[in-house]
Design a protein around this nucleic acid. Structure first.
Length: 425
RNA sequence: GGAGAGGUGGCCGAGUGGUUGAAGGCGCUCCCCUGCUAAGGGAGUAUGGGGUGAUUCCCAUCGAGGGUUCGAAUCCCUCCCUCUCCGCCA
């Protein structure tokens, strides 16, 4: 959520800034709601004050043994008036709140103009796409029977996977490898979190209320949702907390499955492991001091790149343009890995700075010193990396043309010496 | 799943209708005292919001939401959570 005070001061300026991402702010609606809110709140608080003063008088009179009846009667219809103003206020307040919760974050000034992912400028490239003396296969062909979509379709439907044997082991090795690098070399603390969260948690990070169609709902006594990313539970660890300045930054890493409806992508990326309803991810989250978050963004980008470099996978970095930017992000850098089977780069990591946008929804704050007032922290996160897509990239980049896949050197400690996998066709 | 007990400020903990946003203690901050250490004395110390140029002022918050009342931490209802015992169980 954006700062309501700044919003009040300069709604036109905010509307202009939001236009960069193609969001049209309903200024008239905002002004109407804000005016009503202000009027009603002032009137409501005035009546409440009046009532409080009168009630204290009555209390005093009663203690003094006086007759309180005349005082009670002198209040007249204050109670009913207050009730009706309060109801009106609550109505307008929740409408305004809902309005604010649907407004995306303001893009940082450095965010490039553009509408779709095709407009994202490439910042740099690392590594060279491999040259094969045989026709490159895509990961579905390489994996053969180890990738069993016939089974997953029967169990769950489309966009799920069943993997077998060595392929799953490689998948597991990747998770272990990434967690080890981030905890031992990059200073992240590993955390295990719930995969099912409540509405407040989903709202704080920005998935709700606007994107309920994108997430899986779990039926039960209260509304709960499957997490679309570890960002949701991990960032919410600091929800409604006041941290000490000296604790910052907090750096968390968590491996979780991610569940996404992919409701807007019918018929898109239907082959293989590219876009599934369920996939694994190792996620990096940082909670930082507000003037350290841009530095942290660079750090997370570098942390994610380390994984790709150790795995010797060619990739490039792009800066998301205004139109492609996620709802809560002020700026996002995507890392895209080279996929020989598709002959293109695909996202394996998305690293974002949310500034205080999520922190305000979450009321996640810190105190600079023991005496200072609480201030909102900044939150960031990035994949480090998406496991399914990394696995896929290894199958495609390390295929040897003879029905096998070589294991990247960095993973050898995790495969107990096995250097090459062979998949049945 | 069954039975019971609870949820109060950073923490512990009092408070069953009336100047209680909340006693007392611990912690923390500042000051005084003390040759060091230990101890002692005093003052301060919640969060969110609103109006104002500002000091100041006002409103809300004792798990959440409703209700009763002139007035609710305190009474009633619903929900959530925690703990104990029993049952079941990876």
């Amino acid at each position: 959520m954006l700062d309501p005070r700044k919003f009040r001061q300069n709604p036109e300026g905010i509307a202009a800034a939001l236009a960069v991402r193609g969001f049209e702010l309903e200024l008239d609606k905002y002004r109407d709601l804000e005016k009503s809110r202000s009027d009603l709140q002032i009137e409501m608080e005035r009546l409440q004050h009046e009532r409080n003063v009168a009630s204290k008088d009555i209390g005093r009179a009663k203690q003094a043994g006086e007759d309180i009846q005349p005082l009670v009667e002198s209040l007249g219809d204050l109670g009913t008036k207050l009730d009706s103003v309060r109801h009106e206020f609550q109505q307008v307040h929740s409408e305004l709140n809902d309005f604010m919760l649907h407004i995306p974050n303001i893009p940082d000034e450095s965010v490039p103009a553009g509408e779709t992912d095709e407009d994202n400028p490439v910042l740099y490239k690392w590594g060279e796409p491999p040259e094969f003396d045989f026709p490159a296969e895509d990961h579905v062909q390489v994996a053969g029977t180890a990738l069993d979509f016939e089974a997953s379709a029967r169990l769950s439907g489309s966009r799920f996977s069943v993997m077998w044997g060595p392929l799953v082991q490689l998948h597991r090795s990747l998770i272990q490898f990434m967690l080890d690098v981030h905890t031992e070399e990059h200073g992240y603390e590993e955390v295990y979190v719930p995969y099912i969260v409540n509405r407040e948690t989903m709202t704080a990070t920005g998935q709700l209320p606007k994107f309920e169609d994108d997430v899986f709902f779990v039926r039960g006594e209260i509304d709960r949702f499957l997490i679309p990313t570890a960002e949701v539970p991990v960032t919410n660890i600091v929800r409604e907390q006041i941290l000490e300045g000296a604790e910052l930054p907090l750096k968390f890493v968590s491996h979780t499955p991610c569940f996404r409806r992919e409701s807007g992508s019918h018929g898109k990326d239907t082959r293989g492991l590219i876009r599934l309803h369920q996939f694994e991810k190792v996620e990096l989250v940082q909670i930082t001091h507000p003037n350290k978050s841009w530095q942290a963004l660079d750090e997370i980008v570098a942390n994610a790149e380390t994984i790709l470099q150790r795995l010797e996978l060619p990739y490039r970095a792009v800066s998301l343009c205004g139109g492609d930017l996620g709802f809560a992000a002020a700026k996002t850098i995507d890392l895209e890995v080279w996929l020989p089977g598709f002959n293109r780069y695909r996202e394996v990591s998305s690293i974002s700075n949310f500034l205080d946008f999520q922190a305000r929804r979450a009321q996640a704050r810190f105190r600079e010193t023991a005496e200072s007032r609480p201030e909102l922290v900044h939150t960031l996160n990035g994949s480090g990396l998406a496991i399914g897509r990394t696995l896929l990239a290894i199958l495609e980049n390390y295929q040897d043309g003879k029905g096998g896949v070589l294991i990247p050197k960095a993973l050898l400690p995790y495969t107990r010496g096995r250097k090459r996998l062979v998949f049945e066709q």
